[in-house]
Simulated assay, not measured.
Amino acid sequence: MYIDKISLKNFRNYRDETIEFSKDLNIIYGQNAQGKTNIIEAVFLCASGRSHRTSKDAELVNIDGTGFSILLELEKTEGRKNIGIEYERGKKKIVKINEVPVKKIGSLMGNLVAVIFSPEDILIIKEGPSQRRRFIDITLCQLKPSYFYDLQQYNKILLQRNALLKEIQFRRSLLDTLEVWDYKIAELSSRIMIARNEFINRLCEIAKRIHFNLTDGSESMEIKYSPSVGLHNLSDPAELKNEFIKQLSNTRASELKRCVTLIGPHRDDYEMVLNGLSLKMFGSQGQQRTSVLSLKLAEIEIIRSETDENPVLLLDDVMSELDFKRREFLLENIKNIQTFITCTDKDLFENRNFGDNLYIRVEAGRAYY
């Protein structure tokens, strides 16, 4: 799949701009704070329904506008498609596929599949579990709309269950109703955790091979899923659901005391290990960046095998973060993938031929060829 063009109206610092792309390598260059990353953000928004920089749609609106619109046109094996996103302050975001509004944001998933790699991705390793869950969830939501719906429903039920735990403090008669919510949350949890376990196992297998090659065999990387509750079987949904209900029962007293749900996918984590040691605790900055690169390349490989198409690759200001060897490894492994690279200096790419290279200079929210 590849993107032909994108039209931005009142999006960030773009007033009204249509930008056409090459199906190979697109180098988006210019000085800082001119709008390079905003293009990447708009593309990712069309793939996932969310920005990779903010959770507030209002922040995406041009300072002089009341709303924004994006129209992205792409080519897939199944034919041409367009994705439209419209937003007005104070109103719900509207998503359109081929000009037809979709009722649920989940209908967007899989139409455009994108992998994004930015300097902030090192937080996958350095920060808390929420960053690591987010990385997995974004990929799984794009690959499996059913996972997106399960996760969305789980988060709603989690809020309702937590509200009930608080209400029980004042109305003990509601205690018996907690069992109903236990069954609901257990069923969703079992599906989410099985999907995560399968994905992490596959990610580990591929990333381990890539990392071994990237480091000339000097480093061995492992990824270990750490669900929030000890479970014996992460492949049988029925068994997992029953086990989860038992664990909820065991934590009932603590949950009532703290008024929050203490176990479930919202507390999952996974650990990255390098040569037997925690990458977060003992890995150098360089080792952590290299490991994230291995993860992203593994993500591309998984998407390709699941969809029979290459994803769109978004590299937001990462080349300056990688040394020469890792830059070359990355560039050699993204051939035949439509790639968007933001940078301040295009000289790094002028002697490289990926087919139809396109250089786009961005200045004050305008694109020049």
Rank of each mutant, 00 (worst) to 15 (best):
L203N: 03
A364Q: 14
I40K: 06
L322G: 01
T215C: 05
D317E: 07
R191M: 04
D269A: 05
L348W: 09
D323V: 06
R304P: 05
G65V: 08
D64I: 14
E332G: 05
S55N: 14
K5W: 14
I83M: 04
I27R: 03
T290Q: 10
N201R: 12
G67R: 03
F148C: 01
K23C: 13
F135T: 00
T344M: 08
Y368K: 10
S190N: 06
S320N: 10
V229N: 01
L151I: 08
L248F: 09
L256N: 01
I19T: 02
R366G: 06
F349Q: 07
G79S: 06
S284I: 10
E219L: 11
L297F: 05
S69N: 13
E301P: 04
L72F: 03
S291V: 05
I200A: 02
I94C: 11
S305G: 10
V312P: 04
E299G: 02
I97L: 14
E99T: 12
S51L: 02
D64Q: 15
R161F: 05
F329T: 07
F340S: 03
V273T: 09
L203A: 00
L8M: 02
L295V: 04
E219I: 11
F148I: 04
E17D: 14
Q247Y: 12
N250I: 11
N38T: 09
D4R: 15
R258P: 09
D269L: 08
E99K: 13
S7I: 15
D64V: 15
I125A: 00
N242V: 13
Y29Q: 09
D176E: 15
I85R: 04
L262I: 12
F329V: 06
E127M: 12
I138R: 11
T139A: 07
S249A: 15
R258Y: 15
N155L: 13
V312R: 03
K246A: 14
V100A: 13
K104L: 13
M193R: 07
L279S: 04
K325L: 14
C204V: 09
Y147N: 01
G106K: 14
E299N: 06
I19L: 06
E306H: 09
D182R: 01
G276L: 10
I210P: 01
A238G: 13
V273P: 01
D345H: 07
D236I: 08
C259Y: 10
T339S: 10
S294C: 01
Y149Q: 13
R53T: 05
G49Y: 01
R366H: 14
L297V: 05
T339E: 02
V229Y: 09
D316Y: 06
I168F: 03
L25N: 07
G128D: 13
Y359E: 08
N233W: 12
E59T: 12
Q169K: 15
P145D: 04
K156Q: 12
L313A: 09
S254I: 15
P145L: 06
N32Y: 02
K280D: 01
I303A: 00
S189D: 07
I40V: 14
I206S: 00
E179M: 10
K36L: 02
R304S: 10
F117A: 07
Y369C: 12
K241D: 04
L72W: 00
G283L: 05
G84F: 12
V260R: 09
